[in-house]
Amino acid sequence: MNYVSFSTWITTAPAWIAGLPEGLQNFIFQLFQTFVFADRWKLFANGLKITFIVTIGALAIGIVIGLIIAMIRTLYSSYVVTKPPFLLRVFNTFANIYLTVIRGTPMMVQLLIMGFVIIVPKTDTGTILCGIITLGINSGAYVAEIIRSGLMSIPKGQTEAGRSLGFNYIQTMWYIVIPQAIKNILPALGNEMITLLKDTSLVSVIALRDVTKQAQNIQSLTYNALVPYISLAVIYLVIVIVLTRLLAVLEKRLRRSEH
């Protein structure tokens, strides 16, 4: 049973609704259809779960890729007068190709290619992984540039102080440069996280049932677009507002050492 008609519903609805203006009656009916009837709120809940899983997974992949690419590019650009070693030049070339391709093609196209050409997932889990990987690879390109700007914002003397104590390049980055860089890039990184969350709405093209896809499903079941899609917008908006608040708190906490 996918559909209930207005005339059937109004007979079972509480009596006070019948006394309301017709437009409002209709709106309440649409809300009922979208969320209550046949437990459709569960569709939203399941969709949200997918949205969160894909966002978090893609963010993790994006940060790892971004960090690696940023470190390669920063190390490469630190060779000003002398020529960088061969292996570094190779890595740097790959990093540049990656950045160019990912930033030069639309996310939607990347999803289509990954979903129907490269990975072609057969199972639900496979589709989720495909979405995570594609979005992660995409996000990595943007995160890389954010992290690189952060690493370059830390004075060279910090690296030299770390190296002079005996830390190797990776340790110096990890213990000294990155913790300071994070403070500087947190706003930009937070922005990227929010963009990523909203971009997950595109995964419906590889048949992933995220919250957007579920709203579309409900629209096709109820023949009503307004309530499912406005609700969808509100859901994204609320999540973004909460995330923004959390980031503000985190930023404040990280700034403690700057009195």
Binding site: P155, G157, E160, A161, G162, S164, P179, Q180, K183, S257
Partner: peptide, 11 residues
Amino acid sequence: MVFQQFNLFPH
């Protein structure tokens, strides 16, 4: 090594 600009770790 001690540097002109101290280079303490501010964090």
